[in-house]
Structures are given as structure tokens and as C-alpha cells.
């Protein structure tokens, strides 16, 4: 679900990717700016997006070039991606809440979690490396069902009242 949603979103903003696989978190080459968005409800955790600056620049929908504009777009991409994942989860009977996203810039990142090993998904976009991390703890009573169509409004659709 994470890989499919990520690939579809990135392609929709002009970044066609190939999924490489999962990589050890300590081996991941993080971009200089990451966006993070939290989730709560039946699944509690976070989504982290690491996209090289040149790809953020290339995909910016209004031609933004400054650090604040690029950071804002990276945050919006995290919001859009978690929105897609949320819709997919909803179709399988799981409701989650989304926080507002934020971005962090640094010369180096070390990604840790409190227990276990983070799952870092790696994508290639024309020789550039992107990383996406989805970490979540499920409620003990959560049971995902088979996907149902019509459980949520699809991306790009409109409902009138």
C-alpha cells in the first residue's frame, strides 16, 4: 500500500520512480530536508519523506525556488501521500487522523524508532534516490478487511451537496 501510493503520487507530480526496495535506516542517504507528518487513531505513527532538493524543485507546481517554497511543497507532498494512504486504509476498515506536516533541514539525519527497526522504502527517480518511511503502531483490536470500493472519495474527485 505504501509503495503503490508513493509511486502514484510521485508520478502525478512529474517524478516517475522505480521502487528499489527496503534499505537499512543507517544506510539511507537522507536528503537535506525531510518532511514529517503524524497520524493517530487506529494506527499511531508517522510518515517521513526524503526527496532530493533538485526533485522537489523540478516538481514544484507553481515554480517555487526558495527554501521556504520548497519546504512548503515537500510538506504538502507528505500531506498528499498520507491522504492517499488514509483513503486506502479507510477502504480496509481503518480510520486514522492526520496531523499537519512539518519540514526539517539539517546537514545529517539519524532516523531512529523506540523499538524495532525502521522500514525505509527506497525509490529511484532518474538516478536520484528518494526515501519514504511509514512507521505505525496498530491498536490491538484493529483488523484490516478486504478493500471496499466507494469507502472514500478518490483523489481528484468532487462531491457536491
Amino acid at each position: 500500500m505504501i509503495v503503490a501510493a508513493s509511486g502514484a503520487l510521485l508520478a502525478s507530480v512529474g517524478l516517475p520512480t522505480t521502487y528499489v526496495g527496503t534499505v537499512p535506516h543507517r544506510a539511507a542517504r537522507w536528503a537535506e530536508t525531510l518532511s514529517i507528518i503524524g497520524l493517530g487513531g487506529k494506527l499511531r505513527g508517522s510518515l517521513v519523506l526524503s526527496i532530493p532538493t533538485q526533485l522537489v524543485l523540478r516538481s514544484h507546481p507553481t515554480g517555487g525556488t526558495g527554501p521556504e517554497e520548497l519546504g512548503d511543497w515537500l510538506a504538502e507532498l507528505a500531506n498528499l501521500l498520507l491522504g492517499r494512504i488514509k483513503s486506502n486504509l479507510l477502504s480496509q476498515g481503518a480510520t486514522i487522523e492526520m496531523s499537519t506536516p512539518l519540514t526539517l533541514s539539517a546537514t545529517a539525519f539519524r532516523f531512529e524508532r523506540f523499538s524495532g527497526t525502521p522500514v525505509v522504502h527506497e525509490f529511484d527517480c532518474e538516478g536520484e534516490t528518494l526515501h519514504i518511511v511509514f512507521e505505525a503502531i496498530a491498536d490491538p483490536d484493529l483488523r484490516l478487511t478486504s478493500p471496499r470500493t466507494g469507502a472514500a472519495v478518490e483523489s481528484g474527485e468532487m462531491v457536491t451537496f
Partner: peptide, 26 residues
Amino acid sequence: TTEAQPALLQQAKQAGAKGWIVKPFK
């Protein structure tokens, strides 16, 4: 919005919204 949950659409409808578009928009 990125939100697509029917319960939220229902809240918006009851509060008087006229439409709901899920991002990214056309």
C-alpha cells in the same frame, strides 16, 4: 482537502458546505 472520509463530508454538508474536492484537484 486530502481528507476523503465520508464522516467528514457529512459534517461539512451539515455545516453548510456546497462541495468537497479531494486533492490533488483538477
